[in-house]
Design a protein around this nucleic acid. Structure first.
Length: 486
RNA sequence: GGCGGGUUGGCGGAGAGGUUACGCAGCGGAUUGCAAAUCCGUGAAGACCGGUUCGAUUCCGGUACCCGCCUCCA
């Protein structure tokens, strides 16, 4: 059996992965707070850990992996958005407004992540549907002396968990020394964090032993992972920015509530994403949602995926238009090579080995290049599928619609030339090529070159062979530019 | 101040203590009316300073610069 090696943040080493139960390998990834469209940075962990999910399914069997990714649908940003709608005169109740907004955001999220080729996790729990489990866990923590109530809040007593800070390599004393946290006067210790907080009438709330209130941010992951995966599970993953405080707090809560379990054995963190060398931010004008890239810039989801997998997850990754263009060209070539090809029975061993070596996706992609160079479409397809690439659905590879010429959806033809446009494009292209042929036979090179420039400008690749001209569509084919020459 | 990541050829980006990474671009050739596509060939690297070693881009120590986290953040 393939040995998977993963870098464990907890031990800061690359270790051989041994599941607790090979018949049920359990993975938890921190999901989004659903207040707005997912941005490019949200896509990175989704795609990276989707590859992990695919790898685990390949090695242990598709029915032997349980993948949980949560939706945080209780949050102050969500509340603020709902309050703003209400203030603007929306007649619905706050709860209805919140539910409508989070429902819509989850739909968007699924749309975007499906486009990136991410498989849906086994479970996608919403925090608001697990409030009871959170209250139960908080009560248990209070009963065991790890938490205390003050003025309607319940706080976790950081000093009661000896290993607090171990994951992120900090000590409580160091953190207090450099603390910039706002310290509520009722905290026993400045680092104590909120498990439950009171809600006034303007905020969503649930009845609890401490009055009407809502959970703190960290408790949902502890409660839901316990309910769905148990007190011990295999892998917990997320962005490196979550390492502290979020994951540190999850560990403290879970290990204190369920000392019989070890919580997550392996912790994995992906590094951050930059855009043009800088942190993505609205003020720098380099902020992209995945929806922007797909719809406004016409970048297929698969291309975004390829770019995200082109840098190892443990390194900062820079998004540039240049990378997207390169990935697009490569995938286009590969798609043509694999169109209508039945995938091989198993993936290439070197691709599998690269992924098993701490998800070395760049090395796996390098190997795909060499398989493509040998024109082994069947092996290419089977191997790329481990990375979630070159799957059968076209996933965002569409032609721009052209007025009067129909939908313009790309089709995979049965011919050896692979991907062609719809029939009208084909007729236009072949008519132009025929005109060019006539012009060349008449030595009217000015006209033949003008036709050629037109076709090339529209993204058609012309291949002149001794047997005559063949053609293919380039990745940037734009039928709108297939006008008449001169 | 504390914790962590990065620095490789024109660009992107890996592995490995000693043998071609790879992709894109470039250059030379074949081919072409000229091109394109394709094929063949090819130059080019590892921030800086020390150390270990027969040998380091790869291990160890230090310096510089860039970035992130410590407050909501994937």
């Amino acid at each position: 059996m393939t040995t998977i090696r993963l870098t464990n943040t907890k031990t800061r080493r690359k270790e051989a992965f041994t599941p607790i139960d090979p018949a049920n390998v359990r993975l938890y990834v921190c999901g989004p707070t659903v207040y707005d469209r997912a941005h490019l940075g949200n896509g990175r962990p989704v795609v990276v850990f989707d590859v992990l999910f695919r790898l685990l399914r390949h090695v242990y069997g598709p029915d032997h992996v349980t993948y949980v990714r949560n939706f945080t649908d209780v949050d102050d940003k969500i509340n603020a958005a709902a309050q703003a709608r209400k203030a603007a005169g929306d007649p619905r109740s706050l709860e209805e407004l919140i539910r409508a907004r989070t429902d819509e955001t989850i739909r968007w999220y699924h749309e975007d992540m499906d486009a990136l080729g991410a498989l849906r996790p086994t479970h996608e729990p919403r925090a608001t549907e697990w409030i009871g489990a959170m209250i139960a866990m908080i009560e248990d923590l209070v009963a065991k002396g790890h938490a205390y109530e003050r003025e309607g809040h319940v706080l976790f007593r950081v000093r009661s968990y000896r290993d607090y800070g171990a994951l992120s390599g900090r000590s409580v004393d160091d953190m207090i020394a450099g603390a910039r946290v706002e310290v509520a006067p009722f905290k026993e210790d400045p680092m104590d964090f909120v498990l439950w907080k009171p809600s006034d009438d303007e905020l969503p709330g649930w009845e609890s032993p401490w009055g009407r209130g809502r959970p703190g941010w960290h408790i949902e992951c502890s409660a839901m992972s316990y309910e769905l995966l148990g007190a011990s599970f295999d892998i917990h993953a997320g962005g490196i920015d979550l390492q502290f405080p979020h994951h540190e707090n999850e560990i403290a809560q879970s290990c204190c509530a369920h000392p019989e379990g070890g919580f997550a054995n392996v912790w994995m963190h992906n590094e951050m994403l930059l855009v043009n060398g800088k942190k993505m931010s609205k003020s720098l004008g380099n902020f992209f949602t995945i929806h922007d890239l797909r719809k406004d810039r016409g970048i297929p989801g698969e291309v975004i995926r390829m770019v995200l997998l082109g840098t190892h997850y443990s390194k900062p990754m820079d998004w540039t238009a240049e990378k997207a263009a390169q990935a697009k060209a490569t995938l286009w070539k590969w798609r043509k090579l694999t169109a209508d090809v039945e995938p091989a029975a198993s993936p290439d061993a070197a691709v599998l080995a690269a992924l098993a070596d701490d998800l070395n996706t760049p090395a796996a992609i390098t190997r795909l290049h060499s398989i493509a160079a040998q024109e082994d479409g069947a092996l290419l397809k089977a191997s790329a599928s481990l990375l979630g690439l070159l799957e059968d659905d076209l996933r965002g590879w569409t032609l721009p619609p052209v007025t009067g010429t129909g939908s313009g959806v790309m089709e995979v033809s049965g011919s050896a030339t692979a991907i062609v446009g719809n029939v009208q494009y084909r007729e236009t292209i072949e008519r132009l090529l025929d005109e060019r042929k006539q012009a060349r036979m008449g030595k009217d090179f000015r006209r033949s070159d003008a036709i050629r420039d037109l076709l090339v400008g529209a993204g058609v690749i012309i291949k002149d062979t001794p047997a005559g001209a063949e053609w293919d569509l380039g990745a940037d084919f734009d039928p709108a530019r297939l006008g008449e020459p001169e």
